[in-house]
Structure formats: C-alpha cells, structure tokens
Design a protein around this nucleic acid. Structure first.
Lengths: 260, 260
DNA sequence: AAGCTAAGGTTCATATATTGAACCGAAAGA
DNA sequence: TCTTTCGGTTCAATATATGAACCTTAGCTT
C-alpha cells in the first residue's frame, strides 16, 4: 500500500476510536511501527486532520475535515437536502432513521434522526454499514451494477448475529427481491432485535450515492408495519433523489454525474 | 515535504478550486508531475476524499470528509453549539456573520449566516482567513501565545487592499488594542468597502479555537455601530466558549484541553 | 528508593516506494 | 489533415519511508 493509503487508513482508524488514543496504541492498532505512525500523525496534524492534546499527548480527529465537508456540502448538498426528509420519515414512523453515503467503497452513516420513543434503536454517526448485514447495504447493492455486487459478495461475510445472511446465493436472492420491491428489509442482520428497511438514493439509471433507512425494535415490526415503513422510506428516497439530481438539468449541474 | 503532506496539499487545492478539474490542471496547480498527481488522486479516491466523474474524468472533493466531520462534530460540537449564536448575532446586527476554526495553522471559515439585507457582505464557507487582514485573524492572534503571533507576523504579509496593515509593528499595536478591547476591528483589510469585527472563541486561559465575526459594508459602519457589533460579537463568543468548554468540567470533557 | 515496565519520541543505515521524462492513444481545434 | 492537449502509463533513477535500537520520562511494584 502507498504511504498515502497507509496514512489515510491511520486517519480512518483514529476516527473509529471511541476516544483519543496514545501513539503506541495507534501504532499497534494500525500494525505500524511507532516511528512511522508518529511521522504520519505529525504530517496529518500539520494539515489539521488530527490534533494532539498538548497535555495528555494523545491524538484525536482534527478540524480540517469540517472545512472540507462544508465545501463538499455546498457543492453537493446531500445532507442539507436529505435531512429534512429523514426527519419527516422519523416523525411518520416514530422510529430511528439514518442516512448513509457511499464513499471509498463503503457505506457510512452521515446523519441520524433519533426516534422519540424510549425504546428505540441507536445508530452512531460515522459508523460503517456492512453491505450484507444492513438494510442500507442491501438497498444500495440491489440497485448497483453487477460488478459492485460481485465485489461486495466476494469478500468474507461476517456473521454479526446468528441470523446474519452470509451465503452469497441467498444474498443475491434477497437483492433480487429488494430490486423488485423497491426497498430492502433486514431482520437482525447487524444486531439481534432490530429490523430495518431502506431505499437507495440515486440518479435515475445510475449507481446509488447512499441510502435512507428506518430501524425499529423487532417487537414493533409486524409484517404490515415493516411494509409501511419500507414504502415510506422508498418515497423519501425518491423525493431526495429528485431534489438532488433534479429533473435532468444535467448540463447545469455537473454533480448529477457521479463516479461509478 | 513528505508524500503525505503533498497529497494533503493536493486535496486542499482541490477543495479550493471553484469546480471540478482535470488531471493536468490539478498537476499544474500543485506543481506536481502528472503521473504523481494521478497516483495521489487515485489513492485519495480509494479513500473517498476525492471523486472522479466517470464521464468527464474530472476530479472533485469526495464524501469521506463528511463522515469525519460528523464524528469530529459529535466529539467537539463546535458548529452545532456556535451556529445558533451566530444566527442570533446575524439577526441582532442585520449583517453577515461567520464562524472560523483554527486548524493546520490556518483560520478557515466553517459557517456563514448571511445578512438578510440586499446590500450585504458575502463570505464563502471554506475560505481561509489571513491573520493580519481579517477581524477574525486579529481576534484570534490577539488572544494567542507570543509564539503564535511571532510566527504569523514573520511570514510575508500580503496587502489585499491599499489599506491592509502589513507592518508587523503596527499590527502588534492593533493586537494590543484588540486584547484590551476584547474584540478586533478590521477596516478594508481583505476587501475594500468592508468593515468587520470579531471575538475569539476560547477556553479560559488557553489559545483560541476560532472566532466569530460580523462583516458589514463600510457605508453602514459608523463608529458607534461598529462598537455595538463588536460588543455583540464578544458576548456571542463568550457564550459559545462557555457552552463549549463548560464551567470547568475539564475532567469530564477531555476536549477542553486542546493542542496549543 | 531501587527496579521494572511502558509510555512518547528520536536516530540513521537500509530498503523500498516515489518520481518524472518519455511515451501512448484519443479527442478536440486549427 | 495536422497539431495540440488531454488522461493515463511505463520504468530506470533516486529520493523517501522504514524500523530496530535507542533515549528519557512517568507510573507501578517490590
């Protein structure tokens, strides 16, 4: 792997750590030499991607990504367009709703609207959603190109619960159903006791850019309720997609054409 | 410079470009060889920091920073805490208000609340604020440590307008006034016809993390108005700082100790 | 208080990854 | 048609990254 790749992987690791970590910790975590890890951290710090606590000497995520994110959002307003629909969906269903975005070959949570109920599903902003074990992942894959599906299913598929689907054949079947239905359903895929539904956000005819999902405790997920939530997610996804990609004003909006 | 540094500089350059750019453009812009630029871009793309338009082959900022920014914001909620105060300040003054954050040795705009007036100052999210030529920069420096001030003033100071202060001695005097007054004033420093005031956001006794500024057309900047805006900015900054750094719950909130 | 361990950080010879001039084919302009 | 410029690739030369060993300090254990 290139140096850049290693450094960005280190940054990713830091973002995934619960709290700030020390040099040795980080080095161990990334299987890097202490000296190397330090050089990376210093370099990342120079550019504001990590910060070092002056007192504890521990490292944490810096402020630079905030600036980049604001610029990105100004050019491709995924969050600001999608958030209101997510909130609406959360109000409608009474359950936790989360938005994910596809970047670096992974689906990551970029926004969460918490359910108002006491008994609800918790989703962390920033968490990575495995393709095979989440409704978001299934919805994303189902509407992706064959190449993407093959790639996702060829990797070893971790069983997060005893009900996680890990068989590529079964999964392909599930993706087929999802494609026909228009939204995905995932029972206890990532965590036992959680049922979720999701629909892809996409320009017509092209690969999705993300997904919107509703996650509910299994106790509230009767078959009919699930279908209602699924349809609602689908409707929200469609409206978000229309707002983002417009009624084919492709020429005016270069971002309508996204990388495949 | 290290490879990582160069790659992050390239990323920075892309973020600063108005629109997506082609490979040769980017390489020229960063004074890198085309082959090198391409390798960097490919690597950055793998990690979601840039995207390549599949059709035009041009490159643009990717979605990865959004995820990192959300995580950063969850741990150190600078934007979500400061934004409401910025809005309040914008309503109170009727002028454009912007928030900046210190990262990578630079002050960058992370949020803007536009004035409702037709004749108003425009500030771009993501823009870098030079220390010597903006109210935000002066406010930040005035409350920083001597080392930081020396460093900022030792670099060549560009005259953005014919009224930009570029003499280190005069600037130090200005910083002294700012420190006593509690807020900074900048007349036509970055752009002719704009007067702005700013106050630092900081934990008591430590270096600022950013600033909040009000920018008004000079025609509306009577001496008394400026003072009112300055005091209002100061009040907002103080309230934001209190919310961010709390009433000394340092032990509970490790982020209260920030890198100097 | 001595002794131990692990922390953050640094050094420098070695090895490896980065570099860029030259190249290719495609497409746009003259 | 000819020319230029584009995105992208190749490979020998070389600048750069690497990591074992080292230092110092801080906190524990005995």
């Amino acid at each position: 792997m290139s140096t850049i790749g290693k450094a960005l992987t280190l940054l990713d690791a830091i973002s995934r750590l619960e709290k700030e970590a020390g040099l040795s910790d980080i080095a161990r975590h990334c299987a890097l030499d202490k000296a190397t890890a330090r050089r990376f951290l210093v370099e990342l710090e120079k550019h504001g991607f990590v910060e070092q606590d002056v007192e504890t000497r521990r490292y944490r995520l810096g402020g630079a990504p905030v600036r980049l994110a604001r610029i990105r959002e100004a050019r491709f307003p995924y969050l600001s367009v999608a958030t209101p629909f997510a909130r609406e969906l959360a109000n409608l269903t009474g359950e936790t709703v989360h938005l994910s975005e596809h970047a670096a070959g992974r689906l990551s949570t970029v926004h969460v609207e918490d359910s108002q109920r006491a008994h609800r599903v918790i989703v962390d902003v920033g968490s990575i959603l495995p393709f095979h074990a989440t409704a978001s992942g299934l919805a994303f894959l189902a509407f992706s190109q064959a190449r993407e599906i093959d790639e996702a299913l060829s990797a070893p598929l971790k069983a997060f619960t005893d009900q996680t689907l890990t068989d590529p054949v079964t999964l392909r079947q599930t993706l087929g159903e999802t494609l026909r239905r228009g939204y995905s359903i995932c029972h206890h895929g990532l965590e036992t006791g959680v049922v979720s539904v999701a629909a892809p956000i996409r320009a017509p005819g092209s690969t999705p850019v993300g997904a919107i999902a509703v996650a509910a405790p299994a106790t509230r997920a009767e078959k009919e309720t699930v279908d209602q939530m699924g349809r609602a997610a689908m409707a929200a996804a469609r409206r978000i997609s229309e707002r983002l990609f417009g009624l084919e004003q492709v020429a005016a909006d270069p971002l309508a054409r996204r990388a495949g």
